[in-house]
Design a protein around this nucleic acid. Structure first.
Lengths: 352, 352
DNA sequence: TTGAAAGCGCTAACAA
DNA sequence: TTGTTAGCGCTTTCAA
């Protein structure tokens, strides 16, 4: 009688033992499964699962734990995340949504996030929106579809459709949105602006102007409000956080308010735009006009003149945002945090 | 007789239909499953699955497809990635391993990768090794454990233990490793160096030196070899790709070879280190010594003097690496690629 | 302390 | 063309 398809535990006509249990096993050396580990340790898969669970020890005899551990190590066992995830409803990933990774303030934030989250056993899926709100909404949708356990978002603008009815733990970083209840981790812009104004006044400046970034960004608004609360100096809105937009806006400021002796810029690139406008107006920085930047991005200490700027601790922002997210995921209370920004004085500021 | 626990398809004593099938359903509004969609469309889950599979159409009657689609849309159905992954053995994620996200050459690469891979339906899990080989190996292990379908790695050094016996599709980007067979997507350093040398010779320079980055990096070696193939000028090895290391090495070069009129630096930050050393030696750039950088990172056009440099298309590197990975994942043949680097002439080079 | 059994949501093979 | 069945690998009751 020819042997038909495998029956468990019996011997076939050719004398070979069918070690295979009921169903046919995988044909080859894919990653070892819990069954393999359990078989090698001579226990049931469920026991192996319990033995390897570090979270709740003490449910398995120590000797058994050792045997299972040993088997797992020799086989190089790594639990299948898909299977585990299906069972536990936890994906082990969080989404990190950034507006533009090539904006120099963003990488240190992402790095800080990544550092903390890896350590907590979570993987970061990166999504770059290119400062596009629609794409931001799409990407957030994708991340939700992938069952991210949490989201850290640096939004493209103050109103973000993608975040309107977000239903997973979410933390904003760097930039806030209007009217939401999501926690935000950002720099203390108000104190940063105050430090800049105090520094310039200390040098003797009376006519201080402000060249902002685009008003669609919360950072612009926060810095502008702080500036207006402290001075009655003129402010000109820039179109973007770029050198060109900064140059354009600064040129307008200098034209309308020729007596201006100092400018606080909305960010460092805008500050470099101020340099351009100052030169174009046949003036010099810092001799005629002092400039203070914001962020302290790489190399602004190497430009001419080295830029005085309000340094923002972006790496810390990232770390803190990640910690806040972890807290939210644990349902611990965790609210917004404003991290201290500190003034770094270089050569772009001088007495008028 | 009191009604006992639910029996399928019957009416309970209180008159309420038990719509529930055999087993008790989820108690509440979690994400809708394929069962929900199928039920709503009046078909079997398997049919719904086929109807929603965009890859292989034509297996389901058009009318059914429409019904299922409609049901999926109204319910806001998104397939559970864990369940799908468990079944299909595809995780839908790739690992992106970078040495240091705050190194300005890295973000555009990651952005290029991310762009292409999202479009292909793959999510990027980011891992930053901090230029640490051991951490690199650990992180690659983690990504393997998470069943990444592929890996794009910018290795921390030319010998990378984590990549020794990698068994998933992998592409190197930016930096290569010794003796492997993994495809590498990088800039054509040889032609970049040649362009720099030709430019300097064209200006009349005879005594050209080279200040490198650390020899543990493939980029250093490739640029150095190209330099030595073209000139017999002196080369000094730097300790790192930093301003300080560049300054140290350049100082040595200028001391040992006082007649040097031009330096090709291993990267832009090293070039800025050369500026420092040149000033420290009471010389001026470009009047006494010309400097050429490598990479063209942000703001080197704003330093004093604006840096002449070999621009590397990092964003393209990332895109190309992602495309190469996709090809490898499809088992298409795809090998290394060297993308053109082009010289950007600014004010740090001048006739001697 | 361990084993047995069930099932997370999906898709592939087979049957009708 | 559609339905039935089974099972991916894991964890979690429940029972022994």
């Amino acid at each position: 009688m020819p042997s038909t398809s495998s029956t468990a535990g019996k011997t076939s006509s050719d004398g070979l033992e069918f070690a295979q249990p009921i169903a046919q096993r995988r044909n080859f050396p894919l990653a070892p499964t819990l069954r393999d580990v359990a078989a090698r340790a001579g226990v049931h898969p469920a026991t192996a699962s319990r033995a390897l669970d570090p979270a709740r020890p003490g449910r398995v005899a120590p000797a058994t734990v050792r045997r299972v551990r040993a088997a797992a190590v020799t086989l190089g066992y790594r639990p299948d995340p898909a299977a585990r995830s299906l069972r536990t409803r936890r994906s082990g990933i969080v989404g990190v949504v950034v507006p533009d990774l090539t904006n120099p303030v963003v990488p240190p934030i992402v790095r800080g996030i990544e550092r903390i989250l890896w350590r907590a056993g979570l993987a970061c899926v990166l999504a770059d929106t290119g400062e596009d709100l629609q794409r931001e909404a799409e990407l957030i949708g994708e991340l939700r579809a992938r069952r991210c356990e949490g989201l850290i978002v640096a939004p493209a603008a103050r109103s973000s459709p993608g975040l309107d009815s977000i239903d997973i733990p979410t933390v904003l970083v760097l930039r806030g949105i209007d009217g939401g209840t999501l926690p935000l981790v950002a720099a203390n812009d108000e104190r940063g602006v105050r430090a800049a104004v105090a520094h310039l006044r200390g040098l003797g400046h009376k006519r201080i102007g402000h060249v902002t970034g685009p008003p669609s960004m919360s950072t612009t608004v926060r810095r502008l409000r702080a500036f207006q609360a402290l001075t009655d100096g003129p402010a000109v809105l820039g179109e973007a956080f770029t050198v060109d937009a900064g140059a354009l806006a600064a040129a307008r400021l200098l034209r309308r308010h020729p007596g201006t002796t100092a400018i606080i810029a909305g960010c460092d690139t805008v500050a470099l735009g101020c340099y351009v406008a100052i030169s174009a107006a046949a003036l010099r920085c810092p001799d005629d006009v002092s400039v203070v930047g914001f962020n302290d991005i790489p190399l602004v200490d190497k430009v001419q003149p080295p830029l005085t700027t309000v340094a923002v601790p972006h790496y810390d922002l990232g770390q803190q945002a990640a910690r806040t997210l972890l807290a939210r995921m644990r349902r611990d209370p965790a609210g917004s945090a404003l991290l201290p920004a500190r003034l770094v004085v270089r050569d772009s500021t001088r007495a008028p």
